[in-house]
Write a protein that binds this DNA or RNA. Sequence first.
DNA 1: CTTCGTCATCGCATTTTTACGATGCATCGT
DNA 2: ACGATGCATCGTAAAAATGCGATGACGAAG
Lengths: 114, 114
Amino acid sequence: MKTLDILTDAEERAATVFRALGNPARVRIVTELARRNACATGDFVDALPLAQSTVSQHLKVLREAGIVRVGAMPNGDTCYCLEPGAIQWLIDFCAQVCGPDCTVFDLEGAKSDC
Amino acid sequence: MKTLDILTDAEERAATVFRALGNPARVRIVTELARRNACATGDFVDALPLAQSTVSQHLKVLREAGIVRVGAMPNGDTCYCLEPGAIQWLIDFCAQVCGPDCTVFDLEGAKSDC
DNA sequence: CTTCGTCATCGCATTTTTACGATGCATCGT
DNA sequence: ACGATGCATCGTAAAAATGCGATGACGAAG
């Protein structure tokens, strides 16, 4: 993919986060994580019809996009949590793109140029 | 990519929209569209360091993901607008995933299992 | 020390995405 | 009728993503 260095930092980051979330397995991982607060890798392997190595890859993508964080359970097991603020940042980005109150212009609307 | 039919409809749609937005050029197209309300294809070609055919492809992806809508200017030229509600839907999805007030759990936080 | 359980990473095959030029196809002005 | 203009689509090449088994790393349990 072409680098496209005309983008703002926010746009660049948004594209990265969007891409990371743009996969069914990874969306599921995130929703699962939001629901259960913290999961071991194995939990995702159980919850998804994918091989362990594949799930691990997906977790890596989410980690590198800053959506997910690895930690350790009290018992020492690895665990994944949502990166605090990552989703909120995305929401803020979207809201800002759409304007203050997310006004979207309709083809029929008075504000439209179409 | 594996079908992963365990996903809810919302998750499925979210993954599609995320994927469509997960590209620098397409993020730029959307922000440009939000800023200028309506654009002809040529406007994007001017604004991006990409060939016309490539831009057209990106617009197709955004169309098929329901993020963008084609219409016609008063003078008959084609024009693109943001699909009303598409971004808002995404915001709502994210907000819902995170919980009512987007509570995100920190590794150090009292609510964390880590 | 050895074994087992839990993950990450590697290597590879397949599929998908991305980008481009070429081509087709309307519409507009002349 | 004719040549521009503005786009979409096609065909194709290169790059990236996806998925899996095999392998390695490493602490727990025995």
